[in-house]
Amino acid sequence: MRDIGRALGDPKTYAAETVRQMRNIGVDSLPLAAIVAAFIGAVTAFQTRYQLFGGVQLSVVGLIARQSIILELGPLLTGLVLTGRVGARITAEIGTMRVTEQIDALETLAYDPIGYLVVPRLLAAIIMVPMLTILANAIGVATAFATAILATDVTSTDFSEGLRLAFSAFQIIYSIIKATIFGAAIAFFCSYEGYNTTAGAEGVGRSTAQAVVITSVAILVLDALTALLLAPYLQA
C-alpha cells in the first residue's frame, strides 16, 4: 500500500498505461457485463411478478427490480464477473512477468514496477468498474422493464410508477461506491497475487486461481460491510 501511495506521485509512469488498462478492463468487459445484467434484470422482473401474492400492486415489480438491480445485483455481479475476466488476467500478466523476471528487469532499469504495473490497473479498475456498473444497472432495469411488459401482466405505467417510487439519488451513489470498492479490490488482490507469484508456470496458475477465489470472497465481504455501513443512509 505504501508503495502504491509512493507510485501515485509519479503520473508519467502510469498515465499512458492506465488508459490502455481502462480499455482492457472497461471497454472490453462491456459486452459480458451487459449480457449478465440483461439476464439478471429479466429474471428479477419475471420472478418478482410471480412471487407476489394476490392484492399487491403490480407497481411493486418495478420497485423491487430497481432496488435489487441498482443496490445489489448490478454492482455485485459486475464485480464478480470482472473478477473472473479481468482479475484473472491481471494476476496472470503480472505473475508471468514475475516468474519470467521481467519485473526484476524493470527494477534493474530503474522503473518502478508498482507504478508501471499495479497503479494503472488499480486506477483503471477504480474508474471503469463503476462505469460498467452504471451501464449494467441501466441495461438490467431496461430488460426488467421489457420483460415485465412483454412476458407478464404488468403494464408500462405500473412498472414506471414502481420504478420511480421512493427513489433517491443516493441509491445511484450507493451503487457507484460499491462498484468503486469492488474495482479496487479486484485490482488490488489480483495484482498482489500476481506480484507475489513464485514457482514458475504452475505458480502462475495457482496464483491466478487463488486471486479469483480471494477476490470473489473479498467482494462478498465488502458487499456486506458496505451494506452495513451505508444502508442506513438509504433509508434517510
Binding site: 488508459v19 481502462m22 480499455r23 472497461g26 471497454v27 474508474i127 471503469m128 460498467l132 451501464l135
Partner: peptide, 9 residues
C-alpha cells in the same frame, strides 16, 4: 483506446 474509453465513460 482513448476514444473507446472516452465513449464508454
Amino acid at each position: 483506446d482513448d476514444v473507446l474509453v472516452g465513449i464508454v465513460m
